[in-house]
């Protein structure tokens, strides 16, 4: 075990997989020589050579299409989309091609590819460096969708994603690359001394489809992913109410068991995500929870989410779900 931040743990996962499997290739914009604008592939081109880790033209559609071609021809590409906001030129390739090829070819062809992309707000990124478009992919049959939140789970989940024979969209909360975020922009902790920053240097996996109980309690179930896991953690502490905090980790397919068991225990639920509320993944969870646990629910499920607007620049702290909003939602679930 060594202490790593999330840039280092992701780098370590990529390093392990390049070492282990020569079918693994890394490519994307600025990821080769430079090591990525967030430095997640730093040093890997030098270590494994230009043929394994390389820069591509600035073309997300081209990156996804090339990954598709390599994937159906026996390789296991891991590509980076520089910001999740820039995944849309690749949307057709992902949604209509990568996601569907196994099914459309009667199982003859499949795409074991991983698309990594930094997502989420809190870095003064404005409209196009802040979005969290997970639900635009959870609505696509054939994809797996992962959203990591800590150094430890980012590495284990990324290795599982790369080894998955299905295509995975892997969201990395860029605000948390160098430290967790507890909702206060003036407080900038690093990962130092955080229990989730203890990361094995060797290969290990966290299975896709499994959530993680980040905190344990009995009065309310809080479900979050990405940066919001840490904001929710702080909110739970602030509320003084005993809560389960479920870090969903994989959104598609999501961990039904962990959610159901918790909601059956607490009878109350708050779902937190940064993406806009309408048609956000919280809607799916909320609908499923009421289908599966209707008679266990003691109060309406609350959703705390980004507003249904573009992501702002100077006023981003009034856009991102705050600890205060989450605390109020937790309290509201306790009223009835």
């Amino acid at each position: 075990m060594v202490e790593m931040n999330m840039v280092q743990s992701i780098n370590s996962a990529l390093d392990n997989m390049l070492e282990k499997n020569q079918d693994v290739l890394l490519f994307g914009e600025d990821i080769g020589y430079f090591g990525g604008v967030f430095r997640t592939s730093d040093g890997l081109q030098k270590k494994f050579g230009k043929h394994r880790v390389f820069d591509t033209p600035l073309s997300e559609g081209g990156i996804a299409a090339t990954a598709f071609g390599m994937g159906i021809n026996g390789l296991r590409p891991v590509v980076e989309i520089q910001f999740a906001d820039y995944i849309f030129p690749a949307y057709d390739q992902i949604v209509n091609e990568i996601a569907k090829v196994r099914h459309r070819s009667g199982g003859e062809f499949w795409c074991p590819i991983t698309i990594r992309t930094p997502a989420g707000g809190g870095i003064r990124g404005g409209h196009h460096h802040s979005q969290s478009p997970e639900s635009q992919f959870t609505h696509t049959p054939g994809l797996k969708v992962v959203y990591c939140s800590t150094p430890y789970n980012s590495k284990g989940l990324l290795i599982s994603s790369i080894e998955s024979n299905d295509p995975v969209i892997f969201f990395e909360p860029k605000r948390c690359y160098r430290g967790p975020f507890y909702g206060d922009p003036h407080n900038v902790p690093t990962w130092k001394d955080h229990p989730e920053a203890e990361v094995p240097e060797d290969h290990y996996k966290i299975p896709l489809g499994q959530g993680r109980l980040a905190m344990e309690g009995d009065k309310c179930t809080i479900i979050a992913w990405g940066t919001m896991v840490h904001v929710a953690e702080k909110a739970i502490i602030d509320s003084g109410i005993s809560c389960d905090l479920i870090d969903l980790q994989t959104l598609l397919p999501w961990d039904k068991e962990i959610v159901i068991n918790s909601v059956k225990k607490t009878g109350r639920c708050v779902i937190v995500h940064e993406a806009p509320k309408t048609s956000g993944f919280g809607s799916e969870l909320s609908a499923s929870i009421q289908e599966l646990c209707f008679y266990n629910l003691e109060s309406p499920i609350q959703r705390i989410a980004g507003w249904d607007t573009p992501f702002p620049h100077t006023t981003e702290w009034d856009y991102m779900p705050s600890t205060a909003r989450i605390v109020a939602a937790i309290k509201k679930t306790q009223e009835d």
Partner: peptide, 25 residues
């Protein structure tokens, strides 16, 4: 700011000068 703090710096818009709003993508 005529963009009302919504976009990052350098994403100018200036219709009077027929200069169309800059977009990041």
């Amino acid at each position: 700011d005529n963009v009302k703090g919504r976009q990052m710096p350098v994403h100018y818009t200036y219709k009077e000068g027929r200069f169309i709003s800059v977009s990041s993508p």
